[in-house]
Design a protein around this nucleic acid. Structure first.
Lengths: 228, 228
DNA sequence: GTCTATATGGAGATAGAC
DNA sequence: GTCTATCTCCATATAGAC
């Protein structure tokens, strides 16, 4: 029986053990990298036998998925707060992305150990079907940030803006993960600068000068995001 | 002694065996993916014993590096031709990138098996120090494409343009590798559209309207690309 | 110099005893 | 629920035949 489907006995102790294994695994992944880390090290660090780790997590990858889910659950209320408190698109975007850095901060090296994978067929990739729920929930935050802020954009572009912003965020996080500058100053500069450029661009997007871009941009977005 | 340092005997047969192993490996990587493929399968496919593969390639990764180097050597004259024949920046960029697709075409799935790695510390990553020579040689082509085309751009941005264009290309290739649409139509649309937008942007970059962007963009590029 | 045969050591995962 | 013992499969190393 999986510990998830227990009804009575040991439910509490079970959850504790599971949490202990998860924490231990994250420590080991951080120190040695995901690939280099072994389940033997993880179970030793957690103070359980090898089989114990496999009792709670069906595979090494499953531990990472559990981390993703836990991280997202922790972030949800924080992101909600950003959306209700922020009034402008700038404040909301800055807040949403900044909170990602804050929450992921202690695990930056851990993400580095994982996020070499851009391959959508790899289950741990942020673009995989296994992570679709997490991804869509995150995109929904950008959706709300955009909707509440009455951004003016052509009708053939606007629907794609939340997904574009999510991808912008993913790019920033990827850069941040590999950013070796002290306190990740370079990411800070990249974030500040590109966000300002982004907002400037949205501001002037309606001007006649940029009219020729509209159709091209819309076609590109359609080709990239639309199924079939 | 490595077969590279041979002076006389068997040089020809040796080169043939090496090529046979390389080809076999690429076939296996294509079909099963890089990680899933085993050196046993590779050597079996090549008709040599396991040790034979290790005689020519010190590791599984070394086979991939050999592929990179071979691909680049094959592309060099083609890219040279693009630069001498093309007159405009558009023709040159389109040609350089299109040739990548053409040359990599038969190995698209193979690249998919490899290029999940964006991690710069992973030796096979296009951003790693091990691939720096290949990368720099490729950036040099964009450098020449820009220099010969007298693009007008502020002095604090222009020096970064070749590296930006190279990264643009890498993004396209990554998208292409995972593009499941028939004949990779979506990548085609993305390439066409974004290239036109890029050229339009370069054209209007000097206008007063976009002046506020210049300093921001320059600062971002400085932070991202400059050492220390 | 070229390659075969065999060995090593360690990984993820599992079966079944406690 | 947890542990021990064990399985299977791998990348890689090496000894020595041709």
């Amino acid at each position: 029986m999986s510990p998830r489907s227990n009804s009575a006995a040991g439910t509490k102790k079970s959850a504790e053990t599971r949490a202990r294994i998860l924490e231990a695994a994250l420590r080991v992944f951080r120190e040695r990298g995901f690939e280099a880390a072994t389940m033997r090290e993880v179970s030793a660090e957690a103070g359980v036998a090898l089989g114990g780790a496999y009792y709670y997590f069906p595979s090494k990858e499953a531990i990472v998925m559990a981390f993703y889910e836990q991280a997202q659950a922790e972030m949800r209320p924080v992101l909600e707060a950003v959306l209700t408190e922020g009034r402008t698109l700038e404040a909301r975007l800055r807040g949403l992305i900044e909170e990602k850095f804050t929450c992921f901060g202690p695990n930056r090296k851990l993400l580095g150990a994982l996020s070499g994978h851009t391959d959508p067929s790899h289950s741990l990739s942020p673009f995989s079907s296994e992570t679709a729920d997490i991804r869509n929930a995150d995109i929904a935050f950008f959706e709300r940030a955009v909707t509440d802020s009455k951004v003016k954009l052509p009708a053939n572009i606007l629907p794609y803006l939340p997904r574009l912003l999510w991808m912008y965020q993913m790019g920033l996080i990827l850069f941040w993960v590999y950013d070796r500058s002290p306190a990740q100053r370079r990411t800070r500069a990249l974030f500040d600068g590109t966000l300002r450029m982004l907002l400037l661009t949205l501001k002037i997007a309606g001007l006649p000068l940029l009219k020729p871009m509209h159709k091209i941009a819309g076609d590109v977005l359609h080709a990239v995001f639309e199924e079939k």
